[in-house]
Structure formats: C-alpha cells, structure tokens
Lab assay of single mutants.
Amino acid sequence: KKKYVIKVYFEDTGKEVEIEAESKEEALEAAKRLAEELGLKIKKVEIYP
C-alpha cells in the first residue's frame, strides 16, 4: 500500500514537520489539526508519493 510523506512548513517559526499518511486528504487533515494545536499558520505543504 502506498504511503504519502507530507512536509509541512509553518510561518514565523521556520519549523517543518513530516507526516506520513495513507492519502493526501488524510495528510492534509493531519497538517491542519497540527497547525491548530500549535496555534501556527501553514506556510507551505509539500507532498511526496
């Protein structure tokens, strides 16, 4: 089964997080949740198959 690796870059902090997920949708949801939890804004998202 294919996994996606999503790199999320946050504004202000210069922080980046990698998330593995089964689908792009799932990964983007996780990225949004994470940003909310951390109180950060997402600057850029890169998706690698």
Rank of each mutant, 00 (worst) to 15 (best):
K1P: 15
K1D: 14
K2D: 13
K2T: 11
K2R: 11
K2V: 09
K3W: 13
K3I: 08
K3S: 15
K3M: 15
K3R: 05
K3L: 08
K3Y: 06
Y4M: 05
Y4A: 02
Y4Q: 03
Y4D: 01
Y4E: 01
Y4R: 01
V5N: 13
V5T: 08
V5S: 06
V5C: 02
V5A: 07
I6H: 01
I6R: 00
I6G: 04
I6P: 00
I6L: 05
K7F: 05
K7M: 04
K7A: 04
V8R: 00
V8F: 10
V8H: 00
V8C: 02
Y9S: 09
Y9R: 04
Y9F: 09
F10C: 01
F10V: 01
F10D: 00
F10K: 00
E11P: 01
E11L: 06
E11C: 12
D12N: 11
T13I: 09
T13P: 15
T13R: 07
G14Q: 14
G14A: 09
G14T: 13
G14C: 12
G14E: 09
K15D: 06
K15C: 01
K15L: 13
K15I: 09
K15N: 11
K15H: 09
K15M: 09
K15R: 08
E16A: 12
E16Y: 08
E16F: 08
V17N: 03
V17E: 06
E18A: 05
E18D: 12
I19N: 01
I19W: 15
I19F: 10
I19C: 04
I19P: 00
E20F: 07
E20W: 05
E20Q: 07
A21W: 02
A21V: 10
A21M: 08
A21N: 03
A21I: 06
A21L: 10
E22D: 10
E22L: 08
S23M: 03
S23Q: 04
K24L: 10
K24A: 14
K24P: 08
E25S: 10
E25G: 07
E25L: 05
E26T: 06
E26D: 06
E26W: 15
A27Y: 03
A27P: 01
A27M: 02
L28R: 07
L28I: 06
L28D: 04
L28F: 11
L28T: 04
L28P: 01
E29Y: 15
E29A: 14
A30L: 11
A30N: 13
A30Y: 11
A30S: 10
A30T: 12
A31P: 01
A31G: 05
A31I: 04
A31M: 03
K32R: 04
K32V: 09
K32A: 13
K32C: 03
R33Y: 12
R33G: 12
R33V: 09
L34P: 00
L34Q: 03
A35S: 06
A35E: 04
A35K: 01
E36W: 11
E36Y: 15
E36R: 14
E37K: 14
E37Y: 08
E37T: 12
E37D: 10
L38R: 03
L38I: 04
L38Y: 06
L38C: 04
G39S: 04
G39F: 02
L40G: 02
L40H: 10
L40D: 03
L40Q: 07
K41Y: 12
K41C: 15
K41W: 04
K41Q: 07
K41I: 10
K41D: 11
K41N: 12
I42S: 00
I42V: 05
I42F: 02
K43M: 12
K43V: 11
K44G: 06
K44W: 13
K44Q: 13
K44E: 12
V45P: 01
V45L: 06
V45T: 06
V45G: 01
V45H: 03
E46Y: 08
E46V: 14
E46N: 03
I47W: 15
I47D: 03
I47L: 12
I47Y: 05
I47P: 03
Y48R: 15
Y48V: 13
Y48L: 11
Y48W: 15
P49R: 04
P49S: 11
P49H: 09
P49Q: 15
P49V: 04
P49K: 05
